[in-house]
Amino acid sequence: MAIDEHENEPKTSLGRLTRRSFLSHVGAATAATAIAPLASSSASAEAAPTEAASTKIPGTVPITLRVNGQSHAVQVDPRATLLDTLRETLHLTGTKKGCDHGQCGACTVHVNERRINSCLALAVMQQNAEITTIEGIGGPENLHPMQDAFVEHDGFQCGYCTSGQIMSAVAMVKEPWGKTDADVREAMSGNICRCGAYPNIVAAVQAVRRMS
């Protein structure tokens, strides 16, 4: 990785916070709303709720979500969308918010292997679902072929819609579309790229389709 991404930054990820530093910074009453912990491993899938989840926060309800093969027991506002829960509670911020109205596709995730707009789903209604986010597809050091194709074909500029584009593309490859570029353009038109990297997105998707 050539970019010194976290230089000079305060701690931003849950993984680097100890419980002590966390509680010393904020009152315990607000702790659970501020961050809810990720379950540590998939072994805890059906385990009892973790500490923070058992802390009753006014206005929130306990739920368990299965994301990227791991179960997470969390407290969420019953109005919380799947998108906001992924981002604000589970800190899986690879999934982006672009419109909150199902109009741009930036928040695309897989629910039971189908692509959906996570801004149009309530978290409390996804408790029995297998949810996959961009983090579950591949990381910077172990890219999925679709992610690698997006880099190779420069299928993005700013990168903000990219998670959604790739989640759409990975699902689209398994959907019954025709072989032409026009089919890809049609299938990918629910994902807006304001930078307009569309020709390269089509090239990336077609490269992966030809591989498989």
């Binding site: 702790a31 986010t133 990168g159």
Partner: peptide, 19 residues
């Protein structure tokens, strides 16, 4: 590129802090 295609690139609203 690898950070952007894997959701690891940190945009403003991705930052989170205790409290």
């Amino acid at each position: 590129g690898p950070l952007k295609v894997s959701g690891a690139a940190m945009y403003a609203s991705d930052h989170h802090f205790p409290g």
